[in-house]
């Protein structure tokens, strides 16, 4: 069992989930708040990582974050080193890769909140922030948990993006899914089996959390 890879995977997945929820919440609020063309374009763009091969995403990230683009050069100037093949690069890649899993449940949650409920809260004196904190957020709690678990599990399971952007540097960018690949390449089947079992268990547990909550949501409504 590659414990460095396990630690790295959990750290990457937790950080990705945390940052992604912070980013996805305002994005989902905006998408759910209207019907304009810009929102539809944003929604399509957010869903893109669902259908693109991870290698395509990884390739663009590798090029985009490198010295070939203005964004890449700015990042290099800011950080003092290229982000590709580092943990930060991995984090950026993971966030983009798991973005739809954070945004979609929140968009569904926010747009299913009854319009009159929000309106009466406003008239009774709640400003936009108060409405969000006291009405929108508690009514979409279940979806936040779903989004968090899905992001975490999806990040744990990613392979293509990590390999492209991160390379395979032990302790820095070698996650569990890549460790398995290496172990199989080196014909270490026992180790690969252990790692694979750990991943399968972790993912199943995460999904159990999501579906185990299904009944409770019905209770709340």
């Amino acid at each position: 069992m590659d414990f460095a890879a396990l630690e790295l995977t959990l750290r990457l997945a937790s950080l990705t989930t945390l940052l992604l929820l912070l980013l996805a919440t305002p994005l989902a609020v905006w998408i759910a708040s209207g019907r304009g063309a810009a929102r539809r374009v944003a929604q399509a763009a957010v869903a893109l990582p669902l259908v693109l091969p991870p290698t395509v995403l990884g390739f663009y990230l590798l090029v985009g974050l490198g010295p070939a683009t203005a964004l890449g050069r700015t990042l290099i100037a800011l950080l003092g080193h290229p982000v590709a093949f580092t943990f930060s690069g991995l984090l950026i890649g993971s966030m983009i890769y798991s973005l739809p899993f954070a945004v979609q449940p929140l968009v569904v949650a926010f747009s299913s909140i009854d319009r009159p409920t929000v309106e009466v809260a406003q008239v009774l004196g709640a400003g936009p922030w108060t409405v969000f904190r006291r009405v929108t957020l508690p009514l979409s709690r279940a979806s936040f948990i779903t989004a968090a678990v899905l992001c975490f599990a999806h990040t744990v399971g990613e392979f293509g993006v990590v390999l492209m952007v991160g390379g395979d540097i032990p302790g820095v960018t070698r996650t569990l899914s890549i460790a398995i690949f290496d172990q199989v390449q080196e014909l270490r089947y026992t180790d690969a089996n252990l790692t694979a079992a750990a991943l399968a268990g972790l993912s199943f547990l995460a999904l159990l959390v999501v579906y185990g909550r299904g009944n409770r949501r019905a209770e709340l409504a």
Binding site: D114, T117, V123, P138
Partner: peptide, 14 residues
């Protein structure tokens, strides 16, 4: 600064 009771009693379900 209004007090308002909308049609159909819209309460906060949570």
């Amino acid at each position: 600064g209004l007090a308002y009771a909308p049609q159909g009693a819209v309460l906060f379900p949570h």
